[in-house]
Design a protein around this nucleic acid. Structure first.
Lengths: 331, 331
DNA sequence: AAACATTTTGTAATCGTTTACAATAAAAAT
DNA sequence: ATTTTTATTGTAAACGATTACAAAATGTTT
């Protein structure tokens, strides 16, 4: 690999001049600039990013730390971040915490060690320690998907209360009263969606059957279990609402296996558009999160913060979209 | 951020000694080692990876370049790579080429510029130029999913011919004769699967209806179109076989919309386990690729090559798994 | 006690850039 | 023609680690 020294030698100038040419700095004769460019070309020279990063103490990378790379929500967000970053000549360092705070700590440290320009992160439930420290060291950072209490930091979220409210209200409007619901355990998102759920009941002067509300980890198997349990109740629910994509698959699988008819025996409504919801019969009524927009907004926020580290933190709240299909038809 | 100099000062030693302690090198008095460790602790010191990387000309990162981060095949592979890398204290730089050779070039260059220890890549159809160059510069590399002709390089693939052969044979055994099939265009994988398809017919002394074989880009919309077209034929097929997950969704959506009954009106069989195949009625018979194993094998291969750059290239071929479900029952 | 071997530590060069600062060359003003 | 100003280039010091090599300290042998 040729270095800047080699280029300088061939062009018959100093490394400083080469650097100036490459950075498009002023004060270099057009003639010399030509020579340098020719040398760069002939050697197929590319600046060593590691050396540059060491010298200027920053880089053109941004970090993206997600909780689960297999969750379509995150891949869609990632896609958006990738696209925007690419447009701005940034590269993306994508990491998967697996909902593991220890991994989150490690990756957050790693990001700093790598001199990233900033990071976009979907924090795990438990606020990690490296987290607040990274914030202190003013690493530009924006949070997605989950609000972090207490800290003043750029974030982009969806209006979970409103989304759950609308989904619940839709079930109520379709005549469902005994609504079984499952929400993510220990997650701010989950509890907000629970709030929205309750709000819908309240505003319709109804009482939710609190024994039908289950809090579980956002995993397919737990969704499956929860649905099985709801179905086995003495007085089973007349509809099931799930608060995220993974729970949703699990719950649907349980209903499917139990051969209860949707929507005749039981209504079904869920969060997240995950590809299969329109392939089944009937298609599922869902709340669709604007995943791509979330990624876009997060990247824009991050770019702005990098440019201006002192601006006040901003919180962008996007509305989710209720997509009515056939799974909760009139009861 | 404290540097090794700060640690050295506090411990009252030279930076060389600090480095030796941290690298667990011999020749340092236990007493001194203690002092250094205490200093490290008190300052909360972490070595600067950029500086280290510049000095030793390598790093603990590996690159993973995939064609489409939204394709469950790749996320599952990524997951495996992540897991193994984590166990070996490597971090993973994940990039998405979007099937775009230009992006592939850029990322491949970037990998070298970042001093990665090696890269795992699912190459785009067109062999990119930076590619062969990277190989020349002996960047440790392993290829997944797609064979690259001409070059002698570690790779892990599945036996596509065999897989397609078995899937086709299964359809034939179930009495299907006019099998409509769609294969990925311009892709080695696609053409291998086509070969397997033909082989099954040949070995059963049957003649495939070549007018029912369609080559399209591996995208959902093209799968949808292709299926629609097959259905509208004067003599429509009695079964449809799709050669990858995205085509599969599209084709299924077309069948679903057209209200043809599976398997009574038409059989359906497909590649890739993508989550929805067991949620629909009937569940879909598929070839399941050992995605996690692919990622594992690739990472192991890469680690070995990093350790021993001169060993001869190895090609690992994994068998795919035929999962028989209800979508092609006896015709 | 001197000579030698071995262990422990420090000095300084190095990796490939960027960038203050100094030095030189060219242009403008006197 | 000399001085002053401005534009162009080079020199060398960072950035923060690792690592030959030299030096010092300790231990061993004669």
């Amino acid at each position: 690999m040729p270095s800047i020294k080699d280029v300088a030698d061939i062009a018959g100038v100093s490394t400083a001049t080469v650097s100036r040419v490459l950075a498009n700095k002023p004060h270099v004769r057009p003639q010399v600039r030509e020579r340098v460019l020719a040398a760069v070309e002939s050697l197929n020279y590319r600046p060593n990013l590691v050396a540059r990063s060491l010298r200027v103490q920053k880089s053109n990378k941004i970090g993206l730390i997600v909780a689960d790379i297999q969750n379509p929500f995150f891949t869609s967000v990632s896609r958006a971040v990738e696209d925007l970053a690419y447009d701005h000549e940034l590269s993306v360092f994508l990491c998967n915490t697996d909902e593991n705070p220890k991994k989150e700590d490690i990756y957050l440290d790693l990001m700093q060690d790598e001199n990233v320009a900033g990071v976009i992160i979907a924090p795990t439930r438990q606020t990690a320690s490296a987290f607040t420290e990274a914030i202190k060291l003013d690493l530009p950072m924006v949070i997605i998907d989950r609000r972090l209490q207490g800290v003043d930091i750029d974030s982009v979220l969806i209006d979970n209360i409103d989304a759950a409210y609308r989904l619940t209200e839709h079930l109520i409007a379709d005549g469902h009263r005994r609504i079984g619901a499952m929400f993510g355990l220990d997650s701010v998102t989950g509890s907000q969606r629970h709030q929205g759920f309750l709000k819908a009941f309240k505003e319709h002067d109804l009482q939710p059957s609190s024994d039908l509300v289950i809090h579980v980890n956002a995993r397919e198997d737990e969704g499956y279990q929860a649905a099985k349990e709801l179905l086995s109740r003495a007085q089973p629910p007349d509809a099931i609402l799930t608060s995220n994509g993974l729970l949703s698959v699990g719950a649907f699988r349980a209903l499917h296996e139990s051969k209860v008819a949707i929507p005749d025996d039981i209504g079904f409504a869920s969060f997240d558009e995950t590809g299969w919801t329109t392939l089944v019969n009937p298609p599922i009524t869902i709340i669709e999160q604007p995943t791509y927009e979330i990624g876009q907004a997060a990247t824009e926020l991050l770019l702005q913060r990098i440019k201006n580290p002192n601006r006040p933190a901003r919180e962008i709240i996007l509305k989710a979209n209720l997509v009515v299909r056939g799974s909760c038809a009139h009861h």
